[in-house]
Every structure is written in structure tokens, then in C-alpha cells.
Computed example of a mutant assay.
Amino acid sequence: MWFMYALSWVSFILIAICLTIAVAAGMYYVAELIEEYTSIAKRIIRLILITVTILNICLFLFETQFTWTLCIIGLISNIIYFFILADFPVIGFLSPTFLFSMLLLVIHHYFAFSFFNSHYYPFPEILSYFTIFVWMVPFCFVLSLSANDYVLPQYADKQRDQYNQDSMLNNGGDVVTNYFKKRANKVGLLACMRSIQDTILPTRNKKF
């Protein structure tokens, strides 16, 4: 009996490892697609945002147990995400809009946990709420961070105003040099995965 119990734990660990690798591979593939097709990705994220907003309104109308505070926080978060999406794929991590969206994400988690602690719902319904209303849109933006690394330099763009003349001189003297130096220090999800891939899987030299 103990032998089968031990084998069950071994199989559970193997399944967990396989699922983790499958999810990581899927995220890597989707991040590459977003990097390649940023305009299509923007339209898909906008469609997801509109759908989640409509579902949030339906949740407020048809689920009487849900408090109006929780639904309003979700709606305000979606409005802020629309402002972030307007400049996609450029995402300013220090912009007031992005910082406010992160604050709303933390507040949304707090109110959601508080609500489900005081109201009984089956676990699949709780998971569906967090997946659709809390995590889905921020996860789309996380997958899109790699697209921000390949935006062509546009000094006239309002997102590039932070690079003034002094910072440009300190980083190479012109817009193009500053752009390529910025690309050398990418911190996106896809760049992180590629770094892990290069570390774990060594590159094989081709022989001719």
C-alpha cells in the first residue's frame, strides 16, 4: 500500500513539472506572437477589456450578493486599462496611469478576498471571478511587455519626452544610440524567458 502511495506522489510531481513546462512554453509562444503582431494584439486586448467590462456590469445586475463596491472597483480598473491600452505597446512603468492601475489591482484583490471570506461561493466560481475580472487583463499586459522593447524611437512621442538632452548625451549622444542601449537592457517577460532558455539550454554550434 505504501509503495503505490509513494508512486502516486512521484506521478503527481511529474505531472506538475510537465504542466509548468507546458504553461511556460505557451506563454513564450504567445509573447512572441504579441511581439510580432502588436496591432492585432492591441485589438484582441481591447476586445477582452470590452468583454470583461460588460461581464462586470452583468455581474452587478444578476448577482445580487456582489457588493457595488467590488463591481465599481472592477469598472474603474478597466477604465484605467483603456488609458494604458491607448499607448500600446509603449507602457510607461513610472507613469501615473500605470502606478494607479497597480494600486487598483492590489485594492481589487483585497476587496475580492474580503468578499469571498464573508460570502460562500464554490471554489470554481471564486476561481472564475479572479481569472476573468482580476487577472486576465493584467496578464495580457504582462505578456505584452516584450513588445515594448522593440518600439522604434520616436523622440516626438510623448512617451519619449523623459529622454532629455542631458540624458541622451550621457547615454550615447543621439536618439538611435540611446535606443539601442535601452534595448540592450530589456526586462520584458520574453527577454527573461530567452535568458533562462540560454542559461538552461546551451546553444549547439552547427557543423557544416
Rank of each mutant, 00 (worst) to 15 (best):
W135H: 09
F113K: 11
A156F: 12
P122L: 03
A86Q: 11
Y163I: 10
V106K: 04
S114D: 14
L127M: 10
F111Q: 09
H108E: 02
L143P: 03
S114Y: 09
L85C: 01
A147Y: 05
Y179V: 02
T97V: 12
Y110V: 10
A156Q: 14
V90I: 14
M102R: 06
H109P: 03
S144D: 02
L99H: 00
S118T: 15
L152I: 06
F82H: 06
Q154D: 15
I80N: 10
F83D: 04
L99D: 01
E125R: 08
P96I: 03
Y129H: 03
Y81G: 00
H109W: 13
A112T: 02
L85P: 01
L145I: 13
G173P: 12
F82Y: 07
F100T: 04
Q165H: 14
S101L: 01
C140K: 05
Y120Q: 11
I132C: 12
P96R: 00
D157T: 07
M136D: 05
N178D: 13
C140H: 11
A156Y: 13
M168L: 15
L169Q: 14
V175F: 13
D166Q: 14
L94C: 09
Y155Q: 15
F93D: 15
P153G: 05
L169M: 14
A86K: 14
D87V: 04
N170W: 09
V151S: 03
A86W: 15
K181V: 00
S128A: 13
F100R: 00
L143G: 03
D149T: 06
M168D: 07
F88T: 00
F111K: 09
P96K: 04
M102E: 04
F100Y: 05
N171Q: 07
T97N: 12
F88V: 01
V176K: 15
D161L: 09
L152Y: 12
Y163G: 01
K158S: 15
F180I: 13
